[in-house]
Simulated scan of single mutants.
Amino acid sequence: MRSKIEQIRMSKKNTADSGIDIIESPEALASQISRAEIFFIKYKKALIGVAIAIVAIVLAFAAYRFYIDSQESTAQSALSNVVYAMENDSLSQALNGSGGNEGLLAIADNYPGTDASNLAHLYAGIALIKQGKFDDAIDHLKSFSSSDLLVQGRAYALTGDAYMEKNQPEEAISYYKKAADYKSNEFFTPVYLMKLGIAQEKAKQPKDAIASYGKIIEEYPLSAEVTNAKKYKGLLEGEVGE
């Protein structure tokens, strides 16, 4: 009787030989090819459909990128013509364009998916706030998105400002919180926390406002907002009896 070790060796040998047989034996190889042919024939339509779908997706993506790249170039050129008007507070010209040049509103709408369109939404929001058109400003600011360290937080805060101008402190609070929580930094976060505290006071949330002012004092003691934060916090604590 063969030992267990010999049986294991024979089993491994047979397994290995089966692969060699397929390569060395024409009959075995033909059998494997035949099975593959049968599988292909059986699922021919499905396999071809999948292949066509993959090619279509690749081509569609390539076409989309080509389109976006071409649009980006045009949109960036249009946006550069608007920046000068923005810098000189020619708000109507910046928003609506002039001399055949597109304004921020047109750039934002006509070049979706481009960086220039995205930035045009932000600029339009700022200009519309200055014009007192707060609802329109909110729509554009909400359409803007960025992973930048500072700009997205600024957009959140501006949205909060627009809601405060509309006397809607509850809505403003949610955006000031987003601004304060977005990539915290010593330069702008204290400003956003101060805005948050003021909005919370207006919304009759004194304890929350105290917490916001306290965060400035504790976490950003060197900021310019600390003096007012201490003042407002002390006044509120006196009112609520803390």
Rank of each mutant, 00 (worst) to 15 (best):
E6G: 03
M10N: 14
A16P: 00
A16N: 11
S18Y: 00
I22Y: 01
L29E: 13
Q32V: 15
I33L: 15
I38K: 14
I38N: 12
F40V: 15
I41H: 13
Y43L: 09
L47H: 07
I48T: 06
I48C: 01
G49Q: 02
G49Y: 02
V50N: 05
I52G: 09
A53E: 05
I54E: 04
A56V: 11
A56F: 10
V58E: 11
V58I: 15
L59D: 01
L59F: 13
A62P: 04
A62Q: 13
R65V: 11
F66R: 12
Y67S: 11
Q71A: 13
Q71D: 10
E72R: 06
T74F: 04
Q76R: 14
S77R: 13
A78Y: 02
L79D: 05
L79E: 06
N81I: 00
V82I: 05
D89C: 00
D89E: 15
S92H: 13
S92T: 14
A94H: 07
G97L: 08
N101G: 09
E102H: 10
L105V: 11
A106G: 03
I107K: 04
A108L: 07
D109Y: 05
Y111F: 15
P112F: 01
D115R: 14
D115G: 15
D115L: 13
L119T: 15
L119H: 12
A120S: 11
L122T: 08
Y123V: 04
A124K: 01
G125S: 04
A127R: 02
A127Q: 03
L128D: 05
K130Q: 15
K130G: 10
K130I: 03
D135A: 14
A137H: 07
A137I: 04
A137V: 07
I138D: 06
H140Q: 10
L141E: 09
S143P: 08
F144Y: 15
S145F: 09
S146G: 06
D148T: 05
Y156Q: 06
A157I: 02
T159A: 08
D161G: 02
D161I: 01
A162R: 03
K166S: 14
K166H: 09
N167I: 06
E171A: 11
A172C: 03
I173K: 01
K178R: 12
A179R: 00
Y182Q: 04
K183N: 12
S184L: 12
E186M: 10
E186Q: 13
E186H: 08
E186Y: 07
F188K: 07
L196P: 08
G197C: 04
I198F: 10
A199N: 03
A203G: 08
P206G: 03
K207G: 00
D208P: 01
A209D: 00
I210F: 06
I210L: 06
A211L: 12
S212V: 07
I217H: 01
I217N: 01
S223G: 08
V226E: 08
T227E: 15
A229K: 00
K231Q: 15
K233V: 02
L236E: 02
L236W: 02
V240K: 01
V240W: 02
G241I: 08
E242G: 10
E242T: 09
E242C: 09
